[in-house]
Computed example of a mutant assay.
Amino acid sequence: MRLDKFICDSIGLTRSQAGKAIRQGLVTLNDKKVKQAALQVIDNDVVCLDGAQLQLIGLRYFMLHKPDGYVCSTDDPDHPTVFMLLDEPLLDRLHTVGRLDLDTTGLVLITDDGQWSHRISSPKHHVAKTYRAWTADPIPASAVQQFADGVMLRNEKNLTLPAELKIIGECEALLTIQEGRYHQVKRMFAAIGNKVVQLHREKIGGVQLPDDLAVGEYRELSAEQLHLLQIK
C-alpha cells in the first residue's frame, strides 16, 4: 500500500493532506524520515505522523441502542443523527444497516463493510427482525393468523411474507418479519385497522439487543454475534 494511502486509511486525511504532511517531513517509516508519498508500506512497517504511530483501521461492526428522536442518516438539518452518539474515527465511512424511523427505538447495526450490510438488508436473504409494538387499540387474537398468512399493505401489489405475531398484552405484541418494506410494521397493523403508537426493535437475525446496553450507547459486535449474522 502506498504511504499516502496508508495515512489516509489510518486517520482519515485526504490524499493531498497526507502528501503535504509527507513533504513537510512529518512522517517517518521505520524511524526514518521519508518524503516520498509513493513509498510502499508492508506488514510490520511502522509509520508515524508527527511522532504518533499510525495503524490501519479494519472493518468495524457495531450495535447501537437507538433513542427516540434520532435519524439513521449521516446528516439531517432538523434532527440529531445516530452518528452523533459514536466516538469513533473516520465516522464518514460508517453507515447503518437499514434504518429505523425517527420515533422508533432499539437495535441498529452500524458498519463500514458494505458487502456485509447489503447481505443483511437485502430482501432476498429474508433476515428476521423482531419488533415490540404498542398499539392504540387491543390486538385481536385473529391477527396472529392474519399476519402468518400475509396482509396486503396499502399501495402494494403483493401480500407481506408470513410474519410471526406474539400477543404479549392487550395492546402489546412482538412481531417478527422477514422483509423490510417501508414502515412495514406500522403499515401491517394499519392494514388490520389498528395503529402503532410505539415501536422498538429488539432483534436482528440471531442478535438480541442486550439488556445492559443503555439507550444511546453502542458497542462492538462480538465474534459470536458476527457469526450469528453470517449471511451467505
Rank of each mutant, 00 (worst) to 15 (best):
L86T: 02
L26H: 14
M188F: 05
R187D: 14
I177F: 05
V108Y: 03
P89W: 07
G180E: 01
Q115N: 10
P89C: 10
R60T: 12
D75M: 04
C72A: 06
L94D: 09
I168N: 06
N155G: 08
D92I: 09
V108K: 03
L161C: 11
E220K: 02
L26W: 15
T96F: 07
S117A: 14
L221V: 00
L56Q: 10
K166G: 02
V34D: 10
G180Q: 03
T111R: 04
I110A: 09
N158R: 13
V71S: 11
S222W: 00
K32T: 08
L102E: 06
V127S: 04
P210D: 10
T74M: 13
I22Y: 04
D68Q: 15
I231K: 01
R99I: 08
H125M: 06
R154V: 07
L159P: 01
L102G: 07
D43K: 15
F147I: 03
G169Y: 08
G98I: 09
I110W: 07
S10C: 15
Q146S: 12
V47L: 08
G58H: 04
T176N: 04
A18Q: 06
Y131R: 05
T135N: 03
N155D: 15
K5Q: 14
Y70S: 02
S122M: 09
G106L: 13
G169H: 11
H118A: 08
R60K: 12
E202F: 05
M188E: 07
L49C: 08
T130V: 10
V47R: 10
Y70R: 03
G106E: 04
G205P: 01
H95P: 05
D78T: 08
Q40F: 11
S142Q: 11
E202W: 06
V47A: 09
A163S: 15
K33M: 14
R219V: 01
V71T: 14
D101W: 09
I231F: 00
G51E: 10
R201F: 07
L64A: 03
L229T: 05
S142I: 12
N30I: 09
R119S: 11
E170T: 14
G193V: 09
K203R: 15
L54M: 12
D212L: 05
V41A: 02
R119Y: 06
C171R: 15
D87M: 00
L213S: 10
P210R: 09
W116M: 02
Q230R: 15
Q178C: 11
L91I: 07
V127P: 00
V151A: 04
H95C: 12
I7M: 02
V151N: 03
A128Q: 06
H125Y: 15
V41D: 01
W134S: 10
P210H: 11
Q36V: 06
D43Q: 14
A38T: 11
L221N: 02
K35Q: 13
V41R: 01
N44F: 03
R187H: 07
A21H: 15
C72K: 08
C72W: 06
L109A: 02
M152A: 10
Q53W: 01
T104W: 09
I22S: 02
K33H: 11
H125Q: 04
